[in-house]
Amino acid sequence: MSQTFTKAMARNVFYGGSLFFILLFLSLTYDTHSEMPKQDNSANLTEKVAKGKRLWEENNCIGCHTLLGEGAYFAPELGNVYKRFGNSKQAIEAFISSRPREGIKGRRSMPQFDFTAEELDAISEFLKYVSEIDASGWPPNIQG
């Protein structure tokens, strides 16, 4: 590099550039917040959904599944499972509660969580709420 571009100049580009883009990022974040209600389905964010989200977290479902494409890649995408299961909360609950305790021989297995009926209701309500988030047309098809 030529001598005319000094270390001090490089440092100023770093500080100035970073500061500019941090501020731009913060403004975009601000705008995202105000636009979010149009897509985030927060109108349906009930107490029950919040409880379902907590159960989702406290049982680490994300350690095997993706949710809106983020998580682990070992088991099916669940962001649209409500739709894949024919818009049926009951089908989801039946699936979760029927997992064999010792797994399925030779097949990737999901644990038996021993949820109460109330907990199952909250989880499936949460998955229904997620399926109604407007994720800009993702996933490409029902298989997730």
Partner: peptide
């Protein structure tokens, strides 16, 4: 990371 998680397009 903000393409498909319900954030603006």
């Amino acid at each position: 990371h903000y393409y498909w998680i319900g954030t603006p397009q």
